[in-house]
């Protein structure tokens, strides 16, 4: 009884040489004036019961009060909000400046600038990431052969000027620790270590905004 029949109307349809099992949609039925009036009112009352149930059950309310719950708010560990270089406890990262992430980036948001190290080997000078064009596709993290990159969940990155969304990710320029340990030639190793010591540390990601750049900083230096 009622407007909708509860029973499932199964059927089959043939498309090409395949038989496809289907479920038929029931039609809402309308009959006499009083039938419609009775079941119409009944359906409305049933709907009202559903909403009333929620009204009286505060446990079902789901609102999160965002700025107040900052302490409890935890993003999932894979959440993609900010690209960072992984730093170990001593503050070393693994980036060698191989530029694989640079070429994998679909919208040119990553710019890796190399320089020639003291031993003649290429090493990282600056790792520049433009958050304003980044689509957080994770391809850079996926392709990185040295496991140097990761996406973190720091999502509060709004700024008032788009130019402030250009970051330098590496805190120091120079060869990675691994490369230094690998180099057998003790002379070059010393040379590398020397350059390594004189590295300059930066705190956190550094916005690269230069007001004299016309318009938006485009990553080309």
């Amino acid at each position: 009884m009622g407007f909708l029949s509860r029973e499932k109307i199964s059927g089959t349809q043939v498309v090409g040489d395949k038989r496809i099992s289907t479920v038929q949609a029931p039609r809402p039925q309308r009959k006499s004036f009083f039938f419609n009036l009775y079941f119409g009112t009944l359906s409305l009352l049933k709907g009202m019961r559903v909403t009333a149930r929620y009204f009286f059950r505060p446990s079902t309310w789901v609102t999160q009060q965002y700025p107040e719950n900052r302490q409890e708010l935890k993003m999932f560990e894979r959440y993609r909000a900010e690209l960072t270089l992984k730093y170990d406890e001593n503050g070393y990262h693994n980036c060698t400046g191989c530029k694989i992430c640079d070429s994998a980036c679909p919208n040119n948001s990553i710019k890796v600038i190399d320089r020639e190290g003291p031993s003649g080997k290429q090493e990282i000078d600056r790792y520049i990431w433009r958050m304003d064009t980044c689509t957080f596709c994770n391809l850079c993290v996926m392709v990185c052969p040295h496991d140097a990159l990761e996406m973190t969940g720091r999502f509060e990155s709004s700024v008032l000027d788009r130019r402030l969304l250009v970051y330098q990710l590496n805190r120091y320029a120079g060869a990675t620790k691994k490369n230094i340990e690998k180099s057998k030639d003790s002379e070059s190793k010393d040379l590398l270590l020397k350059s390594f010591e004189s590295r300059t540390f930066y705190e956190g990601a550094i916005p690269l905004s230069t007001s004299d750049e016309k318009g938006i900083f485009d990553g080309r230096i």
Binding site: S21, Q24, P28
Partner: peptide
Amino acid sequence: FDVPVGSVGDSWDRYWVRVE
């Protein structure tokens, strides 16, 4: 799984097909 289909092709059928 079954493929839900409508009979008339009106908005109701499209509604029900999606819910199913």
